[in-house]
């Protein structure tokens, strides 16, 4: 049986998914969530309820999460905090930093410092990041270039 026949309300899910994918693609822009519900042919209330049912978050909460996740990627690449803040769609460093801290558990600058340190260590001593059974199985622990020499 076709999925459309089995689940006649599948078209509702398709609209919600389109809205979610729109947020994914356009999160750095000034997104008006009222417009998204309109484009999905829903009342705002109905849209929020269905979105939350599907993704466990309201569209606004989801948009904020996508922005913070994108900010993490930019910070991982070494982008300065203020640039990352504006690049993902926030217009205030304060609101960005406080939301980042709430969702990630530390301020963006601390997160970046830790992450860049971790990446440098991953390059310097990759064996620290591989469980020994896998390293042994691949013979990586016998490779001289991976010998752990703390500086």
């Amino acid at each position: 049986m076709e999925i459309n026949e089995q689940f006649p309300k599948i078209y509702l899910y398709r609209r919600i998914v389109q809205a979610k994918l729109f947020i994914d693609d356009h999160h750095p822009e000034n997104i008006d969530l009222n417009n998204i519900s309109g484009e999905a042919y829903f009342s705002k209330f109905h849209f929020i309820r269905l979105f939350k049912q599907a993704y466990g978050k309201t569209p606004h909460q989801y948009l904020m999460q996508v922005r913070i996740e994108h900010a993490r990627l930019l910070l991982n690449q070494g982008m300065p905090v203020n640039k990352a803040c504006y690049a993902v769609g926030f217009d205030s460093i304060h609101s960005f930093s406080s939301l980042f801290k709430r969702l990630v558990g530390c301020p963006p600058s601390v997160y970046q410092q830790n992450e860049l340190k971790r990446q440098a260590e991953m390059k310097r001593v990759p064996l620290k990041f591989v469980p020994n059974c896998f390293a042994e199985n691949n013979g990586w622990n016998k490779e001289p270039q991976f010998s752990i020499t703390e500086v």
Binding site: I3, Q6, F7, I10, Y13, R14, I16, V17, K20, L21, Q53, A54, Y55, G56
Partner: peptide
Amino acid sequence: CNDLLATYEELKAKGVVFTKAPT
């Protein structure tokens, strides 16, 4: 996942191949 029909539609839209539709 939280919602199988929504996740199925999203992954299909991204090109994931399903061998069994939600059942």
